[in-house]
Design a protein around this nucleic acid. Structure first.
Lengths: 204, 204
DNA sequence: AATTTGATGTTGACAATGGAAAGTTAGTTT
DNA sequence: AAACTAACTTTCCATTGTCAACATCAAATT
């Protein structure tokens, strides 16, 4: 009846790896809760610590969210890389297509994280880790476009491709498209147009 | 020295047109303050009323923001219409170009309102006025695209154009583009590609 | 003209938030 | 053993959105 000391694993005062636990808790909260429910205190609750504990690992909520976003970008980059590497032909054209499809799939599968990554929560600070991950993502996409249209047109082409896919993802997630429109179909159509345009000679 | 009663216009208990005043106060707050500083109480403060006064005109902060967003869409629609009507040639091509340029200009000039309109604040409710304004905006853009590429390709084309310009605007406002990139230049390049692609025969 | 009524504002309360400050615990170093 | 420091808790504060209760005033009804 009294305190059975067998396996009475009392919660230790120190967590062990609270920093990573908070990042994971933040990500899960972002996906499971409405965006305005994701608070510092909620994340701390999920990690099983007091609401002031995160302060020692991240200075503020903004910095915590910044690193959650960075983790999101890291997963995002890996998803696109995996998709590109999985194409059978391995042509620049096929690789870019696969990456764009994986892009929209990622945004659809992780809307909360994707929104955080792309500025939906302005509290989110651009931490060094986030800045690095953002740059990596850009470099990755620009490389895929360069392989298709050549380096001279890579930058403008990459901006256009990124804008289009990002815009489609955001309009979908924020329900700003008429309800009868299927973004996946639109993406396929749009990519055909885009790539046709990009490969035109007059594009110098 | 004492109270000069001349023109001593004492503030009346009733505002007169508080509803509209709150919408205007909300819009100005959105543009002048950081996004997380725009609160119900701040808007009420700017309108010179108590923090609970808005409740009688809008049920909640979300509904207030919803109608602020609706007003934004109404101004947005007018800006695009004006730009299209101001072209010299009045060709479908010129009108669509002018609208897209006006689109990016609006987003740049009113970043707070634009962000609200396109889901950056998820508290924002889709009020009837907002739903109507969103549909009008979509119809307007779809019409401009239809005039250029015909009705059969209008829907997919409009989704692509909207996604591209919206994506460019959002990436710019959220600083998700590499810093050396100028969105205006990118827009011009992108529109050339897009319209070239849209007018291709294979686009059925 | 007197009264009632209902829309429009105010005040005060509530729980929840992010952050600051100060106290507590547990390893680490000397 | 003693001092030090990092990790975590507790307490407190200003601010937020919403609610209920009350105040005010214009307009409709009697």
């Amino acid at each position: 009846m009294s305190t059975t000391p067998t396996l009475h694993t009392k919660k230790p005062y120190h967590h062990g790896d609270l920093r990573e636990a908070l990042l994971i808790a933040g990500e899960s909260a972002l996906e499971e809760l409405a965006a305005d429910q994701v608070s510092l205190r909620e994340i701390a609750r999920r990690a099983g610590v007091s609401h002031a504990a995160p302060k020692h690992h991240f200075g503020s909520l903004g910095a915590l969210l910044g690193d959650v976003a960075a983790r999101g970008f890291e997963q995002f980059i890996e998803a696109l890389q995996t998709a590109a590497d999985a194409t059978s032909e391995q042509s620049p054209h096929a690789r870019l297509l696969a990456m764009c499809r994986a892009y929209l799939r990622f945004a659809t599968a992780h809307p909360g994280t994707y929104g955080l990554m792309f500025g939906k929560r302005d509290i989110c600070e651009t931490t060094p880790r986030l800045a690095k991950a953002m740059l990596s993502a850009w470099t990755q996409l620009e490389g895929a476009v360069a392989a298709l249209v050549g380096p001279s047109r890579a930058i403008h082409g990459a901006v256009l491709v990124w804008s289009s896919v990002h815009g489609m993802a955001m309009l979908k997630l924020d329900r700003r498209l008429p309800p009868n429109i299927d973004p996946v179909t639109s993406l396929e159509y749009g990519l055909r147009m885009l790539i046709a345009g990009l490969q035109t000679e007059s594009a110098g």
